[in-house]
């Protein structure tokens, strides 16, 4: 087993007085796809935001590639090579596709072939035709592709992907799955927060199930697929 890329020990987070996360511990290994599943409001989005330093959170240990994430501002966390694709995509709607990609651009680490707009257009052929189009004039699926492409422009080692299938046509969800496989093939690890069980089950190596901010399961995806009782109880699928 390889060294973990992202290590989180005992993560807790609160909004005001309401505690949302209760001591989550998990690891993301290089090149794997780890699904984070759970019901609405279980704390999936908060977990990703907490890792990025976007919500106040405390962890016994939080490190990425051996660098501690505690007290780092969001932009420093991102610069370590941790990409983030938020839910609702948050495309810059005033900017064109190419300009959106530019906002994410960061130099690649040594010995890696960097993501360029041209490579990304091959990964997402739909975007290639929209280069000069503004974000406001794109469909939800196109925006989602752009959001992922924009984050890949930073040449991350890992991506936190929040609900990529939300509100998107099934044919595009298929494309998302392919994109995630392509990222994995490039050695990019993915922490995938998903509501869409079939989608998550189809592409993930491992899975974590959280319920009301607590970890209920962590292990290989195959094991979760086999454990029908746990799935019905925590996910309703």
């Amino acid at each position: 087993m390889s060294e973990p890329l992202l290590e989180i020990w005992n993560l807790t987070a609160s909004y005001g007085r309401a505690q949302v996360l209760f001591g989550l511990t998990f690891q993301l290994r290089p090149g794997e796809v780890l699904a984070l599943v759970g019901r609405n409001g279980a704390g999936k989005t908060t977990t990703l935001k907490a890792i990025m330093g976007l919500v106040p959170a405390i962890a016994q240990k939080a490190s990425f590639k051996g660098h501690s994430l505690s007290h780092l501002p969001t932009y420093r966390i991102a610069r370590l090579g941790l990409g983030y694709v938020p839910e609702n995509r948050r495309i810059f709607t005033d900017l064109t596709v190419e300009e959106n990609l530019e906002t994410g651009r960061k130099a690649a680490g040594a010995g890696r072939s960097p993501w360029t707009p041209e490579r990304l257009f091959r990964l997402f052929p739909n975007l290639a035709e929209l280069r000069g189009r503004r974000g406001s004039q794109m469909s939800g699926g196109e925006q989602q592709m752009l959001a992922i492409a924009r984050t890949l422009m930073g040449n991350p080692d890992a991506i936190l992907l929040d609900e990529p299938s939300e509100g998107i046509a099934p044919v595009i969800v298929q494309m998302m799955a392919e994109a995630i496989r392509a990222m994995k093939a490039e050695g990019v690890a993915v922490l995938l927060s998903e509501q869409n069980w079939a989608f998550a089950a189809g592409i993930s190596d491992r899975a974590m199930v959280i319920e009301r901010g607590e970890m209920r399961f962590e292990g290989p995806m195959a094991e979760l697929i086999a454990d029908e009782r746990l799935r019905t109880e925590t996910l309703g699928v």
Binding site: Y75, A78, F92, L95, E102, T103, G104, R105, K106
Partner: peptide, 24 residues
């Protein structure tokens, strides 16, 4: 310019700009 693109992006969503690794 890159500065200009980032300024326009920040006008819309500062938090997202930070999440992309830009020092606000």
């Amino acid at each position: 310019t890159r500065f200009g693109v980032l300024v326009r992006a920040a006008t819309q969503d500062r938090e997202m700009i930070a999440a992309l690794g830009v020092n606000q």
